[in-house]
Design a protein around this nucleic acid. Structure first.
Lengths: 135, 135
DNA sequence: CAGTGTGTATACTGTATGGTATATAGATTA
DNA sequence: TAATCTATATACCATACAGTATACACACTG
């Protein structure tokens, strides 16, 4: 009789993305570039960032989770967007920032938690203080 | 006769840990507790943090990678250690800290990178300033 | 010497991650 | 109308992650 349906592995895998905003955002960015630069088609961008067009399509449609940090970085460079912003939309934090925290965990944990609710202008003032070599 | 070794799947899987320090550190902590509290045996601690003793043994010996954030947190509480410190040793950063960064990525990326090389006392002064409600 | 407590070795498992490969279908253009 | 763009659908895959389950060996204690 044999099985009516092959179904070799799992019957289906929708694989929805955890961060739906990411895909829509980069598609928006790419389409915008495409208006003035026809080489920003999905296929050509995919080729330049070294992924398959089918995969980039899935990513832009939010059908799969955002790519790895390395791929997000290549995409950011390609689209002229800040890598930290794209990584954030991907639900990630740059590994070099994580390492800053890991080296002095209690110190930076306290700093970040105390600044969590601080208004942006206040944090900016701190950044500027530090930048002006106040140590 | 027959096969001298079954070897059903892969021949062997050493599965070395990426963070060798983590295991040695928590074993040290646990052994220290054990001197005054006999209920800090590997098996009993394993039971209290809801993992199998065999697994905790592997972790302490650095034979497998450090556990998930949730398990590291239970371990930290059990051993009376700072969770952020243990997470750092595990090569991780607490998800709540990551979220602080993800909410304002460029802002906190700049802050952290500018403080990356700053001496601890300088960072502490910043923490104190913030804590004293200077905003 | 049976039982109980200590740690360890080894095999196996489900799910997530981060993609590739191939086939398909509509629009444009030569 | 054949070729070549465009994007998508679908199947598949290797590896990592985060453990469980079972069996084993040693020490000691009643």
């Amino acid at each position: 009789m044999a099985a009516s349906r092959p179904t070799r592995t799992a019957p289906r895998r929708p694989r929805r993305a955890s961060q739906p905003r990411f895909g829509a955002y980069i598609r928006e960015l790419r389409e915008r570039l495409r208006k003035t630069d026809p080489s920003s088609s999905l296929r050509q961008v995919a080729q330049r960032i070294h992924v398959q067009p089918a995969y980039l399509s899935q990513v832009e449609r939010g059908n799969v989770a955002p790519p790895s940090e390395a791929t997000v970085r290549r995409l950011a460079k390609e689209l002229g967007e800040d890598a930290d912003v794209l990584l954030a939309l991907a639900g990630k934090v740059s590994d070099d920032l994580q390492e800053v925290i890991r080296r002095r965990p209690t110190l930076f944990a306290e700093l970040l938690r105390s600044l969590k609710a601080a208004p942006t202008h206040a944090v900016l003032r701190v950044v500027r203080e530090v930048r002006d070599g106040k140590w």
